[in-house]
Structure formats: C-alpha cells, structure tokens
C-alpha cells in the first residue's frame, strides 16, 4: 500500500500545477464576461443528442472556440428541443439575427461552422435544418 502511495506522488498529476495556474490567471479574471453582444452556440445534450454523437460535437466546438480565441462566443449545452431525429443539433444565437439551427452535426461539420459561420459570418446553408431535411 505504501508503495502505491509513493508511486502516486511521483507520477500522478499534482494539484501544485493548479495553484500555479491560479496565480497566473487571477489577475485576468473576468475577461470573458457575458454580455448582450455575445454569440451563443448551444448543443442539445439530452439522451437523444448524446446517443447520436453530441458529446464530440460539443467538445470540438468548445475546443475550437478556445484555440481560435473567439472571446465573443459562448458554447453551452441544453436539453431536448423535441427534434430528436435530427440530433446532434447545434443552435447559433447571434445578437440581432435570427437563430440558425444546424442538424445532424458531426465534429467535422462543427469545425466548418466555426470557420464559416462564427469566424466569417456566413451561414453553412447545407447543414441548416430547412435544407438538411428535404
């Protein structure tokens, strides 16, 4: 038992690093404030969404928004919106614009939406619900 504890100290990821991050970050708290000019990206994460692959879609969106420094975009999750057969669903709410609903999303499609829609402001028409379900 003692052996395994010693091994944990040596190789396990320590909380010391978390303290260092805290010290680095504390001066910058509040950079990502939520306000009315923020774009919201919402992924359905109920049973229907999860079963059809929403988890990697949400992870991809959240990672891409962070790595591309899209500070004005908030990625969040929601429950079932009642369109289970079209999951994974991603809704984009931009201030002053109509909501855009993307259906049957994959991580690859999600990256396209980040590039085209969130960065360039061009809706990816072929994944939008009205076009995708014909």
């Amino acid at each position: 038992m003692e052996l395994s504890i010693e091994r944990m100290d040596n190789y396990m990821k320590s909380l010391e690093e978390l303290r260092e991050i805290r010290e680095r970050m504390q001066g910058q708290v509040g950079l990502r404030s939520e306000d009315s000019s923020q774009t919201r990206v919402v992924v359905g994460m109920a049973t229907c969404g999860i079963a059809s692959g929403a988890r990697p879609v949400l992870t991809t969106l959240s990672d891409a928004v962070q790595t591309k420094n899209l500070n004005n975009v908030a990625v969040t999750q929601t429950g079932c919106i009642g369109l289970c057969q079209y999951e994974p669903i991603v809704e984009i709410f931009e201030p002053g614009k109509e909501k855009v609903t993307y259906v049957k999303m994959t991580p690859e499609k999600a990256l396209e939406v980040v590039e085209q829609h969130l960065i360039r402001g061009q809706v990816v028409a072929e994944y939008v619900i009205n076009n995708a379900i014909k």
């Binding site: 991050i21 970050m25 504390q26 962070q66």
Partner: peptide
C-alpha cells in the same frame, strides 16, 4: 477541492479546462 485552490478562477477558464 479544485475550487478551493482556484480561489475564484473558473473551472471553464481555458487553462484550467486544459489542466
């Protein structure tokens, strides 16, 4: 325990999330 150490820095801060 993480929140105690982070003392107000959010768990979804990119650096903390990566950690």
């Amino acid at each position: 325990e993480f929140k105690k150490i982070l003392d107000g820095v959010a768990l979804n801060t990119p650096e903390v999330s990566a950690y």
